[in-house]
Structures are given as C-alpha cells and as structure tokens.
Design a protein around this nucleic acid. Structure first.
Lengths: 160, 160
DNA sequence: TGACAATAGTTGTTATAACGACTATATTTG
DNA sequence: CAAATATAGTCGTTATAACAACTATTGTCA
C-alpha cells in the first residue's frame, strides 16, 4: 500500500502518458482545494456552487445578471440554474425580478444579506487559499496559474 | 462582458491574491478536463466516479480490494461507496464476496466485463488527454505535474 | 470471559445534480 | 401580419451525493 509520490507503475497499469499523469494530478489537487473550501463554507450553510454564484453576483454589481449569464460564469456548469437560484432566493441571499423590456429574462441580484455573508467570508477564504498553497513560492504560483490557464483554455469564462 | 484572460479587476472584487487566482484557475481547468472525460464516458454509461473505481480495481489485480480501500484511492472521496458499488455490481462490472477470515470485510473485484469495457476506453481516453493538453509541451507538462502534486499534497493517495 | 471500543459495511433520509420536455416571450421572414 | 424559429426560463423525473444513524464482526483488556 505505497503512499509515495513517485509513480510505482502498479501491476496492470497501461503505459501512463505524461498527459494522463497531469490529468490525475489536476483532478486530485482541485478536489483537495475544493474540499477545503467546502469545509470552510459549511458553517454558513453555503455550498461551493452557491458561494460561486454569490461572488459572481457581487462582481456584477447592482445591475444584476440574467439567469443564463450566471450559468456561463460559473466555475462548474450547472444545467439547472433555476432551482439553484430558487433555493438561494428562499434563503434571502439573492432577489429576482422579471424584466419589463424583455419579459423573458429574469434579473438576479445579490441582497444585502448575501453581501454581508460574503464579506464575512472574504478574509477566511483568502487565508485558506494561502494555507492550501503555501508550499509554493510566488514565482511558482505565477507559473502554475499561467500553465493552468493554458491547460483549461477550452471553455473560457470570466469570473466576477 | 470581457472574455479575456487577463484579470480586469472587476467592480466589487476584493484584492485578488495570487493564491485565489490559482484556486480559481485550478478548479476551472479541472472542470474542463473532467467534463471532457465525462463526455467520452457517457456512451459507455459510466460516470467518472465509476470509471475511476474500475481503474482502481484493475490496478489492484485479482486480489481485489476492501470497500474502504477503494474509497481511499478515489480521486474525489465518496462517502457512500456501498451504493456506488451496488450499482456497479448490478451492472456486472464488479463482483463482491465477503471474506472468510474477517467477516466484516467485503472484497471487491473487477469482472471480465469490466475489464473489457475499460480496455476499450484506454486508447480513447489517452487520446483525449493528449488533445486536452496539447497546448503544453512535454517540458511544461512535467513542470505542471510537479507543481500540481505539491499543490494538492494534503490528502495524498495512490491511484491504480 | 464479558463489557467496551474499534472497524467494516449497510441503510434511511434529505438535498442536490442530471436529463429532458415544456411554456412564454421575442425575433425573423415569407 | 402570420408562421416559423430562437431565446429565457421553468418544471417533472430519475439518479446520485451528502449526512447521519445503525448492524455485524473483531479486537482489547480488566
């Protein structure tokens, strides 16, 4: 039961390409980071997805965003924005109003309550990220960020 | 609605630390990779999690693994291995037998059918990874892999 | 040995994600 | 202008994830 870093080429493993290695490392690292964030959010009763939506809406400002626009900016796509927002609205984190001009769209905005919760989380979240990545120097972080952006450059969005 | 790479420091965004930037890039990139893999797996009716379990069991060989061991090696932890394996067993992808020595443990093994499906996926999956990461040179891939391992070095497991 | 704790899995329940069909409004075009 | 098409969002259903309590078996030690 080896718990080592170096690949031990276990039994039936087919030729492990460099790309496959990066694939696994990436998912693992991302999962570790996400898990930490979720743990931090749990006391607030927020899921990672909900937190992401709140940040997006804060970034969008008082003009708000259409349902679909929120979906586009999310880190992980959610095919069911409606009910995600339903839950958040019932918890008073966001508000929704149907547009007058184009009555198809529903503008979503963050509430004062949502802003408050988010604000309280800003520092703890930043601290968490630093703790999670403290093993890397600023130079390495920049390097990593650059590589990640290129690696994920398929479905590109812009957050907040 | 900027679709650019460079951070534009949008409206209400608090100071974006380097670490936070890496955090977002990482989740985004991982999501992109995972999405591609899921699309590839869909025709086989496998979820990413199930695929992961099959690879783990193939790597474990004919001795099989205890339920809990499978969970430890998975990329993303699943607190409900039992029902995950239930579904896979009912689809004949795996088999389970209770141990004689220690009657608490249930050994899980991959079936011939599971092996077959996995084998058919090996090449397409490797190709996918190459396509997904073809923007990076071998040197960059090694660099990325190394950085990722250090970034995710909190809950370290060994796959397959 | 007999009570207590630890370990391995299972099961019940609730919430959320995934997939697809459906309604309402707006835009295009013959 | 009416029919067709596109767009925005909603809803029904099924499957899966998340959380927590529960059973069975084994190990510990007073």
């Amino acid at each position: 039961m080896p718990n080592k870093r170096q690949i031990t080429r276990p039994a039936a493993a087919p030729e492990t390409t460099l790309e496959a290695q990066v694939f696994v490392s990436m998912l693992r690292a991302a999962d570790a980071l996400a898990r930490g964030a979720e743990a931090l959010l749990k006391p607030s009763g927020l899921s990672a997805t909900q937190y992401n939506v709140l940040r997006i809406l804060r970034g969008a400002g008082p003009k708000g965003l259409a349902c679909r626009e929120v979906g586009c900016r999310m880190i992980s796509r959610d095919p069911d924005i409606t009910r995600l927002l339903d839950r958040m609205e019932s918890r008073q984190l966001i508000s929704r109003v149907r547009e007058e001009n184009d009555r198809r769209v529903v503008k979503t905005r963050i509430t004062a309550e949502g802003l408050r919760i988010l604000k309280d989380l800003d520092t703890p979240m930043a601290d968490l990220h630093c703790r999670q990545l403290h093993q890397l120097s600023p130079k390495e972080l920049r390097q990593l960020s650059r590589l990640l952006e290129r690696a994920g450059a398929q479905t590109q969005h812009s957050e907040e």
